[in-house]
Structure formats: C-alpha cells, structure tokens
C-alpha cells in the first residue's frame, strides 16, 4: 500500500492527513480526524449513514478514497451547527421527533442540507426521493419528511 499525504478543508479548517491507498474518506474522518459523527452503516453506499458534503455535493464517504480528497472541501455533521447555534434542520429534527436511535441522523441531516440547497421548496415526494439513499429503520420516515419540509419553510422565511 502506498501512503498519501493529503491536505483538504474539513468544516472550514485546513487539515492534513496520511492515508493508505485503500482507505476511504469515512475511515479517515473517523479514525484519523476523530470526527465520529459520520457513521458507518454498511460501507457499500446503500444506507447513507456516512453522508457528508464534498465540494457542496452530498456523497457517501465510504465510496470515496482518502487519496481522492486533495484540496477538497468536506462538510461533516460536526460543522453543521455554527457558533453554538443549531442549523434549522437540526432544530426541526428535534422539534418533530424526527430521530429515535439517532444513528442515521447525521447522514440524513447532511443529505437534507444538500437537498435544500438545490431545491428550497421541495414537495413531500421530492423530499422522499431526495432521502431515498438514507435508510432509517426506526421512524418510518414520516417525522423526518415533516422536519425537512418545515426546516425548508423556515429557511425560506429567514431569507426573505
């Protein structure tokens, strides 16, 4: 395995890490940068628990190599609340009881954040298809969908 020295931006901070060719961004985040808020549910891109934003797009961090991340900007759940204030999505997830065990929550919040950037006023169907790559086994999705739509409304209201 060759080693790679990678510098990237994580949650706005410059970071440097060393990784093997085979190590994924998920491995790097969890074991090298100790950002364990990004969860490993399957390792094959099927559950979405490891979703982070890379250059503004939602990705499965288990399907990206650490070596591919040179100069990339990564946003993880740890960077979502700013200055001690929760992001509207985080707040609405609490208000709507949109989490039970909470292990899928960081991935879903990141996916929802990317989704609302593309579409500030999604329909229920658009939210459901937007979150189709994020499995939740506890909630049956109902309250998650409501929370995302309510957060979208709040974010639209804040902008005007």
């Amino acid at each position: 395995m060759s080693k790679h020295f990678v510098s990237a931006i994580v949650n706005g901070d410059e970071v440097e890490f060393r990784c093997d060719s085979g190590e994924t961004l998920l491995d790097v985040l969890r074991t090298k940068l100790y950002l364990t808020g990004t969860k490993n549910g399957c390792g094959t891109g099927d559950c979405g628990a490891c979703t982070v934003l890379m250059n503004g797009r939602a990705i499965n961090s288990c399907l990206v190599l650490g070596a591919e991340c040179s100069d990339m900007s990564i946003e993880t759940i740890e960077g979502m609340a700013v200055g001690g204030e929760l992001h509207p999505l985080q707040q609405k997830f609490l208000d709507h009881a949109a989490l039970q065990c909470g292990v899928c929550t960081p991935g879903i919040l990141n996916m929802a954040k990317a989704l609302l950037k593309e579409n500030s006023n999604p329909s229920e169907t658009e939210v459901r298809f937007g979150l189709a790559g994020n499995l939740c086994r506890c909630t049956g999705y109902d309250k998650i969908v409501r929370a995302v739509m309510d957060a979208a409304a709040e974010m639209r209201a804040r902008r005007t």
Partner: peptide
C-alpha cells in the same frame, strides 16, 4: 429530548 442535541450534532 434530553439526548437530542448530541444526536443531531454527531
């Protein structure tokens, strides 16, 4: 929920 903030912030 008492554990809520911890779970939405990772």
């Amino acid at each position: 929920r008492p554990d809520g903030v911890d779970k939405v912030t990772g």
